[in-house]
Computed example of a mutant assay.
Amino acid sequence: MTLVDTNVLLDLVTDDANWADWSIARLEAASLNGPLLINDAVYAELAVRYDRIESIDAFLDEAGLQMAPMPRAALFLAGKVFTQYRKSGGSRTGVLPDFFIGAHAAVDGLPLLTRDVGRYRTYFPSLKLIAPGA
C-alpha cells in the first residue's frame, strides 16, 4: 500500500509537462506493491480542480485510487507537528493538509509518494518517501 500526495495526482490531472511522466511511472510502480491510497485531505485538495463530485470520483476510479480514512492518532499527530512548525517560525497558513497527509502515512506505516519532501523530511523523519532523487 502507498499513500499518494495531491501534487502527484495534480500532475496527471493537469498533464504537467515537467512531472506527469514521472508521476505516472511512480504510480504504476507503487501499484505493484498494493493499493494506492488517498485520504480526506488529498481528496479535498484535489476537489478544487473538479466541478462535480462524479468527475473526481471517476478520476479516482480510473486511476485505481482508494480512500483510506485518517486514524485519530494521525489527526492528533498532525495537530502536534503543525504546532511545532508554527513555533519554529513557520508562517505559511495553507500547509495543514501536508501535516494530515504526513501524519497519516507515519501512523499507518505507509510509504508516501510525493514531490514535496521538505516538510515531510523535517517533521516525519522516519517516513519512507517515494520522491524525486530518493
Rank of each mutant, 00 (worst) to 15 (best):
A17G: 05
T2W: 10
Y123D: 12
I53R: 15
I24L: 13
L60S: 05
D15P: 05
T2K: 08
K87V: 00
L37I: 03
N33V: 04
A58P: 07
A68C: 02
Q84A: 07
L60N: 08
N39F: 07
L129M: 11
T122F: 07
T6H: 03
L12Y: 01
L96M: 12
V8F: 10
G90L: 10
D21L: 15
L112C: 04
A58T: 08
R121N: 11
G89M: 05
E54G: 13
S126R: 11
A29C: 02
A41D: 05
Y120C: 08
A74K: 04
P125M: 13
R52N: 05
M1W: 00
L110H: 00
T2E: 07
F82D: 03
E28G: 04
I56D: 06
P69R: 03
F99K: 11
G34H: 01
A78K: 02
F76R: 13
R72S: 09
T93Q: 11
D5P: 13
F59N: 06
A41E: 08
S126A: 15
D116H: 01
G109R: 08
L127Y: 09
D11I: 07
L129F: 06
L3T: 02
V117K: 05
L129P: 04
V117M: 09
N18W: 12
F100L: 15
N33D: 12
V13L: 10
D40Y: 06
P35S: 11
A25F: 04
A68R: 05
G109C: 04
M67Q: 06
R86D: 09
I38V: 11
T14C: 01
V4Q: 06
G133N: 12
G133C: 05
A25N: 13
E45C: 02
T114V: 01
G133Y: 09
E62H: 13
T122R: 14
T2M: 11
T114K: 00
D40M: 01
S91R: 14
A25V: 03
R121M: 14
N18A: 13
P71E: 13
Y50T: 04
D57T: 05
M67L: 15
V42S: 05
T14H: 10
L127N: 06
D15V: 14
N18E: 15
K128R: 15
T114L: 03
A105D: 06
P125T: 09
G102H: 02
I101A: 07
D21T: 14
